[in-house]
Amino acid sequence: MANGDTTNGEVIEFILSGEKLLSENANNLDLVAKAGDNLYRKNRDFIREKVKDNWFVIIEPISGTFLACSSQLKLFEYAQEKFPERLFHSIGLLKNNSLQYAR
């Protein structure tokens, strides 16, 4: 983990393995969603090891950067400062997503 834990609202980040989105498709919402979802699926077990169920998770699909935080507001403030003008694929609360995939 790059930036400590989220017990005090800090954001953690790491780079996911897998196919990234081409920067020329940065504003294509369909491709942002597909690339982000594919990165999440490929790294799901690793993510669930690193992140607590009640954290919010987003993925920047061009760099493959995974970001997570217990505060949704802090997460997006951090993400938009680090990647201005980029679009993110949101996983939402990890526990909700895990339930959805378990159905």
Partner: peptide, 12 residues
Amino acid sequence: LIGTRYYTMADG
């Protein structure tokens, strides 16, 4: 605008 997300509907 910040991005996208997949939602699972009631019908799956």
